[in-house]
Write a protein that binds this DNA or RNA. Sequence first.
DNA 1: CATGAATGAGCATTCATTCAT
DNA 2: AATGAATGAATGCTCATTCAT
Lengths: 215, 215, 215, 215
Amino acid sequence: MNESEGKAKTPNEKSRKEKHSFIAEARREQIIEAAIQTLDEIGYVKASLSQIAKRAGISTALISYHFSDKNDLMNQLLMKLLERFTSYILGKVRQEEAPERKLDTFIMASLAYQGTHHARNTALIEIIFNARTPDNIPYYKLGDDDEDQIMYELQQILRDGQEKGIFGTFHVEVMANVIQGAIGEYMMNSNITSKVELETYSDELIDIVEKAIKV
Amino acid sequence: MNESEGKAKTPNEKSRKEKHSFIAEARREQIIEAAIQTLDEIGYVKASLSQIAKRAGISTALISYHFSDKNDLMNQLLMKLLERFTSYILGKVRQEEAPERKLDTFIMASLAYQGTHHARNTALIEIIFNARTPDNIPYYKLGDDDEDQIMYELQQILRDGQEKGIFGTFHVEVMANVIQGAIGEYMMNSNITSKVELETYSDELIDIVEKAIKV
Amino acid sequence: MNESEGKAKTPNEKSRKEKHSFIAEARREQIIEAAIQTLDEIGYVKASLSQIAKRAGISTALISYHFSDKNDLMNQLLMKLLERFTSYILGKVRQEEAPERKLDTFIMASLAYQGTHHARNTALIEIIFNARTPDNIPYYKLGDDDEDQIMYELQQILRDGQEKGIFGTFHVEVMANVIQGAIGEYMMNSNITSKVELETYSDELIDIVEKAIKV
Amino acid sequence: MNESEGKAKTPNEKSRKEKHSFIAEARREQIIEAAIQTLDEIGYVKASLSQIAKRAGISTALISYHFSDKNDLMNQLLMKLLERFTSYILGKVRQEEAPERKLDTFIMASLAYQGTHHARNTALIEIIFNARTPDNIPYYKLGDDDEDQIMYELQQILRDGQEKGIFGTFHVEVMANVIQGAIGEYMMNSNITSKVELETYSDELIDIVEKAIKV
DNA sequence: CATGAATGAGCATTCATTCAT
DNA sequence: AATGAATGAATGCTCATTCAT
């Protein structure tokens, strides 16, 4: 707002501005956390601003103050959730070198996320399957080709393995989709979750995939 | 709310009741069809009773008359959709004898349903991922063991194949889940749908599964 | 809604439909009257749906039920008020034959309306000077050339008088505007209203106009 | 709220106060200008404090700091606008000596103001027709006898002319009102504005008035 | 069986205002 | 003097539901 920003005439001028941004950022974070909790507890359909505000211990007006829109809040939340999920998975996967190790890690990390970040994952699912773009297209139908780094990474691993002759021949996109589907199904369906241990499922899935991709 | 509500005002109570039931049944059917159309067109979140009524060409009050609740309507709709889907798949699968044929048919029929009954399938997905039980549990987390005949049938096929020595050893529940997940992913994610033809996906998936289950 | 309307299969079928429309029409009328009262009492800025509903003794939702919009309500109200005002003035004016009598009647009737229909007139002023079109143009700037029958009639009287040689030469549009302004000023400004009697004002205005238009 | 609020914290209280007053006065001026612009652009109903603040490039809190109330702001704005308008008209009128010249000048200056100070005039109209006193009386109904120097001056001109035998006999208050109405009508109604040139209207109005007041 | 009429509860959002800094 | 943060109240509006007819 002021063209002489960055000059920091006085030491506390800068800190004051930083504090302001800091408070605002903290609030936004808090609201987003409350939104995650709300989505987890009562689902997208019932997740009104007042429900979110209640969980954050603030007024609904304050949400409107920090986010231009309910849509804005949901979009920023979706981005944050995807970001966190993506960086969690990629962080683990990229520590590995060999394609077969990368693949195993991918599967294990993806499944583990559900256990370690249950609320986040539920919130993610709730948004993806309920929210729609302004053009009324559900996010789950979008598949956001460009943005979905996870899917891109998985396909890269598979292609890399094929090129190195470690994996056999198969339709990469279909295979990636099958793996994603198997992971997603475990994440969402608590029927299988309650009957098969995460580790068992992980091991068995890796087993199945290995059989399917081997040379 | 209760089906035995008649107070016998007239002597020909029975015939009247039958007629009433018949008309009522037809109306319920009509409302449910309109609900499917509504869910397909505008999604669960926006699918208000008035939107459904508009598509059915009736008043919203009439929906409230025939269903005790919006929840009741959605539950009945869900059941009907599951029933139809189930009987479609089982109808095809049970025409086959050999486990490997049954399995292939199961996969192909499941995937084909999306193409042949698009609106129904979208409606099904919209309900499963948006509606919640009175106890606030999302349907997608339920997985309803007892009612999910589809899953039961798939697992039966796999077990049958194993017993007959046609399939190798693998964790039946995990394998069934993987297959279900692969099918579901293709149904929901239009990203893969637009990039891989139904038949290709079907063939490749069968291929993958065969490799994974073979002795 | 039904193509067999007007056939009136049974006597009470028709009457039922008529009754429904009648009730709805009566409600709309009641709401519009409440809106007039509200505008008169608290002005356009504060005239919220709940204030109108309070005066009508109904819920705000019922206003939304009978009018598609607040804008819709205000537009219909504006039309009704203009219509009533116009028909009142024109009804009186058209009973006269001679241009000079028509002109006198026009002035007297316009001024009298303020006295006899005070609330309506205030409501009219409040809407015209406060409401705006969707394009954000105030109604008072619109001047609604085509619709303003009153202004058209006044100009016709003046032209007719000129053609018949009863009135002299003057700029018709300016003269009509001056007359309208003089009437409007008396209607709105309660300062002059409290100091000069309606009849005095009427007589004097007629006098002034006569001097200005005479041959 | 009170101008003698200083608590004499520092010795050079007076100079500080003066500086403060000066800055404060400048801010108030700035806010008032922004308010004029806002009223002109979007009208009274939509002229929220945040809209005004946006146009002033300041925060809404600062408006609340300098004006006790939104009402206070609007009142002070109204006074300022009336003051400016009054001094503009009176400045021109008082340069003339003869009543007939004064009258012509009054009319021309009043009409010219719309052209030369369009935004101010629109803002003036918006406030007068939308704002209300704490007692809920619209300003347009007030006519504020004591403060309205314009109307007083006009009536003085007319009386002076009569006393000097230049004007004939007529009801001064009504005549003044007619002139005011004719001017106001042209100012507000863009229908006439677009059809009749300012100069034409001015000439014709003077002509009409001259005929009406001549001996 | 079917509807129009009606409502209370809830929605997202904006507003004028206050307060700590 | 000035601002960002925060709120309670109010707005227009939609919704599922009820009820008399």
